[in-house]
Simulated scan of single mutants.
Amino acid sequence: MTADPVWKGIEIDAETALAMLAWQSDMGADEPMLDNPVNRFDQPPAPQGNGPGPSTTQPGRAAQQPAAPDTSDDGAAAHVAEAARLARSAGDLAALAEAQAGFDGIEIKRGARNFVFADGQPLARVMIIGEAPGEDEDRQGKPFVGRAGQFLDRMLAAIGLSRDAPDPARAVYIANVLPWRPPGNRRPEPQEIAAMLPFLRRHVELAGPDLIVLMGNTPCKAALGQEGILRLRGQWTTAFGVPALPMTHPAYLLRTPIAKREAWADLLSLSARLNGA
């Protein structure tokens, strides 16, 4: 990657670089671009001819073709269909957790330590949907228990909500789009979201919340088919037939403290909706 003159002589550590990349993603950037334009018409043309030309293959070895990734539409559709069948067969949350834990149509399951289903009060009026478990969540088997989760608890407490509250009116129920940690905490891929969507939809049906909070880009992608959380946040919409409020993820707020002001406005909007305002 060619260095921008602005950054010459400036060293950026890995954490800062990742935060900058996450910020660009949150702003809606979805295509990596080079520093200078590339004229594809200047690329050398492929060899033409009616007959076989001189071989460049080493003697005794067949020409190697790039291996195509295993992303066949038929295979992906079969996984989604199986997920939908399993989700429909679940009559309660315990059965849904068992069905989802046994689903083998998602590769990241093999590298995760624990299946992370949900936390909080299942009868709560508010259901929070996050992205996927991180390292702490993968270790403990519960969603939102790391730094971001602790900050989320403080955010909720500021408007009188808690995952530990016995009263459903003051409680929250928390789940993720993916119940397994992606390798290296990378963002979930479209096929992974599609495979988990039937389980997530059934999860919402069985929990029966009055309101949903979509924490970040991935929940918005799964529930709304949209990304760009900084554009979507604070605007009430509908997800899975339930009023839903997109909000910035607590991890983003920890990286970008100035965004806490907008998050506080979103929390007040959530509180007002709960109180019938």
Score class of each variant (00 low, 15 high):
L178R: 00
V116T: 02
I128D: 03
F41R: 14
L123D: 03
L178M: 04
V177W: 03
S89L: 12
A157H: 14
Q43Y: 07
L96S: 07
P52I: 14
I129K: 04
A124W: 03
A83S: 04
A63H: 11
R40D: 07
V145F: 02
K142E: 06
G120K: 01
F115T: 06
L96T: 06
L34S: 12
G91D: 13
A97D: 09
G102R: 08
L93T: 06
R163L: 01
R40Q: 09
G134R: 02
A99C: 08
R163A: 01
A46I: 07
A63T: 14
L86R: 03
G91I: 10
A112G: 04
G53W: 06
G91H: 12
Q121H: 12
A171V: 04
Q65F: 15
F117H: 05
R139I: 14
P166H: 02
A83P: 00
S162Q: 06
N39Y: 14
P133C: 01
A175K: 02
Q121M: 08
D70Q: 12
S89V: 11
G105D: 01
G120V: 00
R125W: 05
R181Q: 06
G146P: 02
R40M: 11
L178S: 01
G105I: 00
R110Y: 15
M155W: 07
G134T: 08
P168Y: 00
E98S: 15
E137Y: 04
A84V: 05
A175M: 07
D70C: 10
D42N: 13
G102W: 08
G60N: 02
D70M: 09
L178A: 00
D119T: 00
V172Y: 03
P143L: 00
G130W: 03
V80Q: 01
E82F: 05
V145D: 01
M127F: 10
P179G: 03
Q150F: 12
A62V: 14
H79Q: 02
A158L: 14
M155Y: 05
P37W: 10
A46L: 10
P168C: 02
Q121W: 01
A95N: 12
A62G: 15
I129W: 05
D92M: 07
G160W: 14
E131C: 09
P168K: 03
P54D: 14
D74A: 12
G141Q: 03
E107W: 05
Q64N: 10
D74Y: 07
N39Q: 13
P47T: 09
Q64L: 12
L93H: 06
T71E: 10
S72K: 00
R170V: 05
Q58L: 15
A63W: 11
A165C: 11
E98H: 13
R125V: 05
D74F: 11
Q48R: 13
G49F: 08
A158W: 12
P143T: 03
A94K: 15
F103C: 01
I106C: 02
G49H: 08
N36Y: 14
G160Q: 12
N50Q: 10
D119N: 05
L86E: 04
R170M: 08
E107N: 07
Q64E: 12
G146I: 04
N36Q: 15
L86D: 02
